[in-house]
Design a protein around this nucleic acid. Structure first.
Lengths: 213, 213
DNA sequence: CGTTGTGAAGAGCTTCACAGCG
DNA sequence: CGCTGTGAAGCTCTTCACAACG
């Protein structure tokens, strides 16, 4: 198959598969069937086989998938089989928490610099990095691929502009606001309020259903 | 229209509309057309009109939508026109950052208690709340609707079990692992690594496209 | 024999196009 | 006249069902 167009939803699931497969690996599981993996991910087994088929034939008919090999294959498919260099803009509560979060390094995303425009924060050391003025971002042009925005919403676009000037390839935006970027810069939004709103909606709906009887 | 079944994707977009509409309001915009709102949200205008139609007729033909009224209507539709009581389990870096994050209160989600199973953390005060042993969660049964999990992955299921025992209605899970819960408990996952993986994939793909010519 | 890989069918979501209405 | 609300068309993604094959 090895098709060219891959659904966005497939990519999100692949990230989930990696997570679940790494738990299987930790537990000493060596082989999984699409059915077993599907149960752990709450998706349909065919879905998994189709998702994987976009990238190659990773399984063995009559047997299943070798967990270690499949982890490597999926990581390679996603492009996370190497180190990515990132910078963070906005050293507030959330920014600090992320800088101290070892998981980034463990998963191959190395945060190599931290920026903020608050003069009181500049020069401070957070998690081994000296906080620098956002205007110095351009000096890092050669070095960086992903920018992480953790500023307040009203400064997010300015942070994005600095990152774009520095030639960033992708932006992970934690600020609760839309940002605009040229087409060749990918933007992903992380906003847990959208998730909590979704909870509120579903709970409300189920409560109405109960009392509506 | 006021249909009964509402696509999951619609709910996610409604959360986005609220965000963008509140920015319009801040900027003094009083009326928006579906087209203008659509541009700001990067969606199709018909999509917006259809999404809203699931809940009622909020617009004025020939005019558009009154921003203030629409914010209220969408919030009411989502069930976020009232206060929700929440608790947080896992007072690590991320947990602390969330407890200090005023945005929760501002949006009507009041975190009324914080729990952790580490004896060194119990009794500590974080953002005005005394950290309590997770086993005491049941004492809050009457009072809580949403549980926020910010434990390490290996303790997430235990945290979830405590929350479920306490009769929680929904769980927002920040731990990078799946958790199981009965059908009447809604679970939402927040995992920014899925987003960063998605960036890595798209960047890799576009780079391959360039060099592949 | 059992599980993958995949074309075809089905479901669900998005967009179109225009009637309805202020 | 202009913009909303909506049935119908179009499209994408998911699921089924089974051939392929180790």
């Amino acid at each position: 198959m090895k098709s060219q167009y891959i659904p966005k939803a497939t990519i999100q699931r692949l990230a989930l598969y990696v997570q679940v497969l790494e738990e299987f690996k930790r537990d000493g599981v060596e082989i999984v069937s699409s059915e077993r993996l599907a149960n752990s991910c709450s998706v349909n087994p065919s879905q998994i086989r189709k998702d994987l088929a976009y990238f190659g034939e990773f399984g063995v008919r009559g047997v299943g998938y070798y967990v270690n090999d499949l982890i490597d294959s999926v990581k390679r498919s996603l492009g996370i089989d190497r180190v990515w260099k990132a910078v963070l803009v906005g050293v507030g509560n959330l920014g600090r928490a992320l800088l101290n979060h070892n998981e980034f390094k463990r998963r191959g995303f190395h945060i190599v610099a931290a920026f903020d425009c608050d003069p009181f924060k500049i020069g401070e050391e957070v998690s081994g990095l000296e906080v620098m003025c956002s205007k110095r971002l351009r000096e890092f042009s050669q070095d960086i691929e992903i920018g992480i925005i953790t500023t307040p919403p009203d400064r997010a676009q300015r942070a994005a502009n600095h990152l774009i000037d520095a030639g960033i390839a992708g932006i992970l935006n934690f600020a609760p606001t839309r940002i605009t970027a040229p087409d060749n810069v990918f933007v992903e939004y992380v906003d847990f309020f959208h998730h909590i709103y979704s909870l509120a909606f579903n709970i409300t709906l189920s409560q109405n259903k109960e009392s509506g009887n």
